[in-house]
Amino acid sequence: MAERKINPILKLALELGPIVLFFVAYLRLKDRSFLIGGTEYDGFILATAGFVPLMILSTLALWKLTGRLSRMQVATLVLVVVFGGLSVWFNDDQFFKMKPTMIYLLFGGALGVGLLRGESYLKYVMEEVMPLEQEGWMILTRRLTAFFLGLAVLNEVIWRTMSTETWVYFKTFGLSAAIFVFFMTQSGVFSRYGIDEES
């Protein structure tokens, strides 16, 4: 089923809104603790507890408006619910901090399996957005596999060795910036192997 077009600003707001709201909530609650049901929760856990339903609602809204969800969106939502839920349930922020690691290992691993089979699974996900020759897809897939695995390692290093606040800034801004910069640096692949849709 073809994806229905929606206002790009609305789409961006639904995709990034939960992350921005998590960041704002964390900044407002980070130095506070709350006694709920006899258990003390810090601001990070409460921000996480708010992030999970927001992520569910925004993903459902995207599905309702566009008529489809990518496998990456579904996998991300499942991991957010699982690891965010574990953090809240056990009152332990480590589970949520591990979530980006699991996401990037999953994506990198899936692309890696495709490469071992001589295929580019990235092509199946992004072919409509970026038409490329097969060799271009293979080059991009190899680079993105290494990039995702590198991000997984970097996330582990940061959350295990630095403060929660540093990790929140890294997750909110660092990961998004890294992905943006990665694709900007692939312009040579796009220009060399790009396919003119009109032809």
Results as ranks from 00 to 15, higher is better:
Trp167Leu: 02
Glu40Gly: 09
Gly108Asp: 10
Ile139Val: 15
Trp167Gly: 00
Pro100Thr: 12
Pro53Trp: 04
Trp63Lys: 12
Ala178Glu: 09
Phe96Tyr: 12
Gly85Glu: 10
Val74His: 08
Leu69Cys: 06
Tyr124Gly: 13
Leu35Ser: 15
Ile45Gly: 08
Thr145Gly: 01
Val125Asn: 03
Val157Phe: 15
Val125Met: 09
Asn7Ile: 00
Trp167Ile: 02
Leu54Trp: 02
Leu62Val: 08
Leu21Tyr: 08
Phe182Pro: 08
Thr48Asn: 14
Leu116Phe: 14
Lys5His: 11
Ala75Glu: 06
Glu119Pro: 10
Met72Cys: 06
Val82Thr: 11
Leu35Gly: 14
Ile36Pro: 01
Thr48Tyr: 14
Met98Pro: 12
Leu54Ser: 03
Gly188Arg: 14
Met72Pro: 08
Tyr169Phe: 14
Asp42Leu: 08
Val153Asn: 02
Met1Phe: 06
Ser191Tyr: 05
Asp92Arg: 11
Lys30Ile: 03
Lys64Asn: 04
Leu151Thr: 02
Pro18Asn: 00
Ala2Ile: 15
Ser176His: 07
Leu69Tyr: 06
Glu197Ser: 10
Thr161Ile: 12
Leu122Asp: 00
Tyr41Met: 09
Thr39Pro: 05
Leu46Asp: 02
Gly17Tyr: 07
Pro53Ile: 11
Leu154Ala: 15
Arg71Leu: 14
Val88Gln: 05
Leu122Ala: 05
Leu79Lys: 03
Leu144Arg: 06
Gln186Ala: 15
Tyr193Gln: 00
Ser120Gln: 03
Ala2Gln: 15
Gln94Glu: 14
Tyr26Trp: 05
Ile6His: 01
Gly136Ala: 15
Leu14Asn: 03
Ile195Ala: 04
Phe22Glu: 00
